[in-house]
Amino acid sequence: MRTLEHLPIPGRLRRRIERQWLIGRAIKRRHALTLLTDRTRQIASRDILAFVTQRNERVRLPYFLDYYRKLGIRHFLFVDNNSDDGSTEYLCEQPDVSLWWTKAGYKQSRFGMDWLGWLLFRYGHGHWCLTVDPDEFLVYPHCDDRPLTALTDWLEDSGRRSYPAMLLDMYPRGALDETVYREGQNPFEIACWFDPANYSIRKNKYLGNLWIQGGPRTRTFFSYDPKSGPALNKIPLVNWNRRYAYYSSTHMLLPRSLNWVYDEDGGEMASGCLLHAKFLSTFAEKSAEELDRGQHYANSQEYRAYHAGLQEGAHLWCSESREYHDWRQLEDLGLISSGNWP
């Protein structure tokens, strides 16, 4: 697909071809998925669905499921990438989870997006769909008072089909492995610090999305090459249609009108945050494992850098880090905005 960029095809046509190719690819790869538990009959017409890929996240799952159940997710569609820590069995027991299993390569499946692409195509049509990782927790304005349905109802009334939520890396105050994360615990009791204002933004003309980088990872591991730092822009919540396709992870979508989640005339549109609870005690072992597997973006460059950094005892906290309180704080800092939702 990358070769298309060099051909003299008009952008519009090219995007169309790419979108159809992505959807076709997801449909074709559906055979890689083995259905373990099918509770999709429970899905009612206006339910909000969550789509998740996971691998060996057993410890994190209880809190993750709890968090999103409280927010108003009615059904979880999980793809389990060959876990061996009991998370498969755990998910099978959950009353609102449908589970697929695969041993195909994460990287070869466009970092899991082929699998989720198929599930979104098959089950997401006509629903508000939240596509997240088990370490991402959605926070939006008024999230302590209003369930997710209030947000999706309002988005729908306002004629919007997608909702952006930037990835906000959270980290503990000391070394990552200082406090051990216990199952069921709120990860943000440990990792409650974040970088308030060191994000870079540029616009991607081809897909119309913003490309946000920065945060603690760029500051610590990529300060010599900020361009390679991880992308933080995400659009996880979409009123799905089977003609849509995630282009690269959940960073952007096709058709590109779904990526226009920002105002260019000075106003603020509504947006939320995905609190990223990646940097917990579980991270050190995970980074070693992932490094061996080599299944992550850009040759696991990120993991390589973390691993090297963490070996040296580096930690992410700095004196300018802020302690997380609630969404109001994020809004005051300008990381999220309630836009037109009073």
């Binding site: 933004i201 913003l210 105002d263 603020e268 947006s271 300008g334 990381l335 905005s337 037109n340 939702w341």
Partner: peptide
């Protein structure tokens, strides 16, 4: 306040849902 935030936004803020083009800041 909500309306002015939606239409004018907070000055000097560049973020995921406010990225004014040049001279419309």
């Amino acid at each position: 306040r909500t309306l002015s935030r939606r239409i004018l936004g907070r000055p000097g803020l560049y973020m995921q849902s406010r990225f004014p083009r040049k001279d419309a800041e």
